[in-house]
Amino acid sequence: MSDIRANASDVAAGAAEPGFGDFVALLKPRVMSLVVFTALVGMLAAPVALHPIEALAAILFIALGAGASGALNMWWDADIDAVMRRTATRPIPAGRIAPGEALGLGMALSGIAVVMLGLATNWAAAGLLAFTIFFYAVIYTMWLKRWTPQNIVIGGAAGAFPPVIGWMAATGGLAIEPLLMFLVIFMWTPPHFWALALFVKNDYDRAEVPMLTVTHGRRATRAHILVYSAALAPVAVGAAFTGIGGPLYLALAVVLNLLLLRGAWRIWRRDETAAAADGWRVEKRFFRFTLSYLFLHFGAILAEAALRPLAVWPVALWS
């Protein structure tokens, strides 16, 4: 009764009432969709098949863990979200959800996701999910994001864990294949986001978040894109010669990585005057390409997994 009275007085004072959608927004559903896709690929590429219900539960709880870490991220970053235009309308800075509610939701969902993944599959996968939430919420969000311009690189590691968790959920162990999938996302993240940083005027500096374009300059950012792309290409192509690869993946990876290197080389060769003159056309094209790059690589891994039972490729040629 007192709860109703207290809430009724809040409304009288004009307090905003959070809707169900605000709590969903707190879980960063767009990030969750990428997590679902990469975790699903990791799970389906594994040599052990889960029961469909177990697989569904595993994907849901991995996504829930990602959502929980998103809520914890929004709770901690509410102060900087409030001063950046892109994030000012998020539920906490907009005043629709109290910070304590976001913290409570993030912690509760983290616990549910980890325990349920452990019960649905195995405790190794659940442990890695717990570590991923800790890594994203504590190591990245609380510690390194506001401290080093390499924050994108570190944040990329958190985003690279889902296919490994998916693989572990199916097999209960690790292998070279999930590590390669991890490395592809890990090394893909910096060139992808730094290309965006070159043509989007964001206000990270106003929020005092060190970004490479601000701390080391745009010339250094272009060099970083080239170096990370050069490191990514052999890993992405090399995965073709492991259990998750095959002729289809190899053909696609060779083409995509040649295009990646060509784009990164073009970005490196340009100066700001040339980029400004054509409205950062090369940088924008590279950014859009990197989106397809990741999707196609993981799509090809999925296609190889689907083709494997059909024995399309001779075993002696590709095992």
Binding site: P18, G19, F20, F23, H51, E54, L60, L119
Partner: peptide
Amino acid sequence: RNIGVGLLLVAFILLVFGLTIA
């Protein structure tokens, strides 16, 4: 909000039931 939470709880119960059967 209450309907959303209710539906989520029902979905959770169904999932746990499905997992048990599996």
